[in-house]
């Protein structure tokens, strides 16, 4: 983020914050955050530093996940600029491996062991392969995602970037920033892109 952008974002976020705070005699949100910082502690790989919201989370937390459009657009651009595309330009991997990654809900909890790659958690919230009946509905169905959109380089780049950092397209999206947070790596994201876009993937049958 450039200095100018940081300042603009901070000013705008401050304006949002002041509006919300004005409506309350007390700032219960600040009290809640202070309480969480007092009560929580590291366990396993879930370090204490996680209680600290980052800039994007702060904007979403302070605006009830509805930031003013100007802020949202600007911060989405920043998030998009930080997406690291594979150096070799290859964005589609193996859909069969992608299906396994999509099935796994593991990763990043205090019960998960360090160094073991996390899963994509995809079926937790999305429908993908129609044969898998156990799918969640927090996110939209992705059945026939590629069949409806094709798999042009632009679409591949969009899907890779969306999985890497969902907030680049919808600032306060419920979807985690899987690449940004390091929850999954380049290979895993490629395989998930294939699961969504490869014509041979069951998602597109």
């Amino acid at each position: 983020m450039t200095i100018e952008r940081k300042i603009t974002a901070a000013l705008l976020a401050g304006a949002v914050f002041a509006t919300v705070a004005q409506a309350e005699d007390r700032n219960y949100r600040a009290e809640a955050i202070a309480m969480i910082k007092k009560d929580f502690r590291s366990r396993g790989i879930a370090g204490y530093e996680r209680v600290q919201e980052d800039g994007l989370q702060a904007v979403c937390n302070r605006s009830g996940n509805r930031p003013p459009e100007a802020i949202a657009k600007q911060l989405e651009q920043d998030q998009l600029a930080s997406v690291k595309l594979p150096a070799d330009g290859k964005l589609m991997g193996d859909w069969k491996s992608g299906e396994k990654i999509a099935q796994s809900g593991r990763g990043m909890t205090w019960a998960d062991k360090p160094g073991i790659p996390g899963g994509g958690n995809c079926y937790n919230c999305h429908q993908l392969d129609p044969k898998e009946k156990s799918f969640g509905t927090i996110g939209p169905s992705l059945y026939q995602f590629g069949k409806l959109r094709g798999n042009t380089p632009e679409t591949q780049k969009y899907v890779y970037s969306k999985i890497y950092n969902a907030k680049a397209f919808n600032l306060c999206s419920e979807m985690p920033r899987f690449g940004h947070s390091g929850a999954i790596g380049e290979k895993e994201i490629r395989d998930l892109v294939a699961l969504l876009l490869d014509p041979a993937s069951p998602v597109n049958k």
Binding site: R29, E53, Q57, N61, M108, P176
Partner: peptide
């Protein structure tokens, strides 16, 4: 109510 709404951590 605010604890309930507080987003943080690697998954937001």
């Amino acid at each position: 109510a605010e604890v309930f709404q507080y987003r943080a951590g690697p998954y937001d």
